[in-house]
Amino acid sequence: MSELSDLKVPGPTTIALTEPFWAAAEEGRLILQHCRSCDRSVFYPREICPHCWSGGLEWREASGQGRLKSFSRIHRPGHPGWAPVAPYVVGLVELAEGPTMLSHILADEPEVGMPLELAPTRIGGRVLPCFRPQFHHQEEKTIMSDTKPKDGWANVTRGKPSVGDTAERSRKTSMDDIHAFTAMTGDRNPVHYDEELAKKTPFGKLVVQGGITTGILNAVVAEDLPGPGTVFLNTNFNFKKAVGIDETIIGRVELTSVRDDKPICQLACTVTNQDGDVCVEGTAVTYTMPLENL
């Protein structure tokens, strides 16, 4: 059985512009260009943003999360160098940041729609940003192969939480939030500022930026559950109802899975308003960094 690392296959034809992408790949990282003007991510790397033609592109670390849009198991490779590992799988990965890239997929049973995560892999003489199914698709395999499960939650401030744990916190929105968010992001959408105009939209009122609504969930996971050290690895939110000014919102999370070997949780999230209407509903994956004894 041949190994990917032994293949004699063509590598990327790097140019100066794309050099940082492949240098990061060699370190096992995935970076994407991000446009300062239109706030969109760009793949593959370009000299100007294909969405707005701004030259203000900067490199950002990608989450490494994605979804399999399509795949093919290659039985007869187009390049003879790949023959020793055929059949193998390539697929289209819709990255969490928006763009789609083609990649090598390390999956025995790929399925369209399957969540993927970055899996840097040595192919020929270089490390490439390949992808594999996200951990919960691999859970069984991991548990089978771990003879002695290690404590992934050692030195985490609040320790290991349990499936079913919940936490919530609430706050009142204000016009100041809108100004602060604009200062932070440059989002000056008239639906946040022009009251007359906003009244004519389906919202019927001035609304706060979506980031303000979901932002309360950042506070819940970082302050309450799983607690200090927690960052989002992935979020998937559906915006059901707009939130206006001077409304009380309640962010709530419930843990739907907790890993043993790593401080990673899956959560169900909601943000509701004072009337109990669901404004945001979704799921998230968190990683809780150990902050004790650093």
């Binding site: 093919s72 187009g78 790949w82 590992v85 083609l102």
Partner: peptide
């Protein structure tokens, strides 16, 4: 770009592209 960003992952030639389109249609 297609040479730089598709070929190194093992995707050379039109067959792969149309296989991806067909798989997406089936899914």
């Amino acid at each position: 770009p297609i040479r730089e960003f598709d070929v190194p992952f093992g995707a050379s030639g039109a067959n792969v592209s149309y296989a991806l389109l067909m798989q997406a249609h089936m899914a």
